[in-house]
Simulated assay, not measured.
Amino acid sequence: MLLRAPAFNQIRPSQLTHGLREVREKAEAYAKLEGHELEMAIADKLVPIVYGPGEAPFAIDHHHVAAALWRAHVKRVPVVVVKDLSAYSTNEFWLTMENNRWAYPYNALGKRVPFCEVREFSWELEDDPLRSLSARVRDEGGYGKTSVPLEEFRWADFFRQTLPLPKNDAEFDSRSRKQ
């Protein structure tokens, strides 16, 4: 597959939300790095992409990384091409993306929305505080990291059904710690 490497600002998201708290934390960490340390941190997080209609590149994971790098004023990210679906129609493309668990068409309330509502850039995604909570719970050992795509969103949906939305940092922190 000999498609050109996309510019950072050409990579489209395949989901509607991210955890803004998680993005801010990652951005702060990236902003503290320079030179070789920054290069190594970036190289460690290849963004997997799928080419869609019109050869548009879509990130299928690491949306938080892309948004954090953008916030940290790092305007490049290494990618790995997973699949070329550029010959597909828009409908075939999104159906294939969803069937492979490469897309997540749900808003911050957990409601399904049309794919046409997916934003243009990862740094424009809607904040889902429970997505940040699911990442923090995972990082604190509440559940194991898995290679299953979109697993953090399923945890966020579980929390959405079982916990009230945290109103402040103290509530967020208390819900994410081991008891």
Results as ranks from 00 to 15, higher is better:
Leu46His: 04
Lys167Asn: 12
Lys75Phe: 11
Gln161Asp: 11
Arg71Gln: 15
His62Glu: 13
Leu46Asp: 09
Arg160Ala: 02
Met1Leu: 15
Val80Phe: 11
Val113Met: 11
Val82Asp: 08
Ser134Tyr: 03
Val118Cys: 07
Glu171Cys: 09
Ser122Tyr: 04
Lys167Gly: 08
Leu69Tyr: 04
Ser147Cys: 05
Thr17Leu: 01
Arg112Tyr: 04
Glu39Met: 13
Tyr143Pro: 02
Phe159Ser: 02
Val50Asn: 02
Gln15Val: 08
Ser147Val: 07
Leu2His: 13
Leu33Asn: 09
Asp173Gln: 13
Ser134Asp: 10
Pro6Phe: 06
Trp70Gly: 08
Glu34Ile: 13
Ser176Cys: 12
Thr17Asn: 03
Arg136Gly: 09
Lys32Trp: 15
Asn107Ser: 01
Thr146Asp: 00
Thr17Trp: 00
Trp70Ile: 07
Glu126Tyr: 00
Met97Lys: 01
Arg71Gly: 09
Val23Met: 03
Tyr106Thr: 01
Met40Ala: 15
Thr146His: 00
Trp155Val: 00
Ile42Tyr: 12
Ala29Cys: 06
Trp70Tyr: 14
Val137Met: 12
Trp155Lys: 11
His73Pro: 10
Leu163Ser: 11
His63Cys: 03
Leu2Trp: 13
Asp157His: 04
Lys145Asp: 05
Lys45Ser: 15
Phe115Thr: 04
Ala59Arg: 09
His62Met: 12
Lys111Val: 02
Leu150Pro: 05
Phe159Cys: 02
Lys111Asp: 07
Glu98Lys: 06
Phe58His: 10
Lys145Asn: 05
Arg136Thr: 08
Trp102Ile: 04
Leu95Phe: 07
Tyr30Met: 07
Glu98Arg: 02
Gln161Tyr: 02
Glu152Lys: 12
His63Gln: 00
Phe93Ala: 02
Glu22Lys: 15
Ser86Met: 02
Glu28Gly: 14
Pro129Cys: 01
Leu133Tyr: 03
Arg71Met: 14
Lys178Tyr: 12
Phe159Ile: 06
Leu33Trp: 06
His18Tyr: 13
Thr90Cys: 11
His73Asp: 12
Val148Thr: 07
Ala27Val: 01
Val137Phe: 09
Ser176Ala: 15
Asp128Met: 06
Pro6Glu: 03
Lys178Pro: 09
Pro129Ala: 04
His64Leu: 10
Glu22Thr: 12
Gly110Phe: 00
Leu20Ala: 10
Trp102Gly: 04
Leu85Asn: 05
Leu16Ala: 02
Phe159Arg: 06
Lys83Phe: 09
Glu22Arg: 15
Glu92Phe: 06
Asp173His: 13
Leu16Val: 03
Asp44Tyr: 14
Ala67Glu: 06
Pro53Arg: 07
Ala56Asn: 05
Thr17Ala: 00
Glu120Pro: 02
Arg175Asn: 13
Phe159Asn: 05
Met40Val: 14
Pro48Met: 06
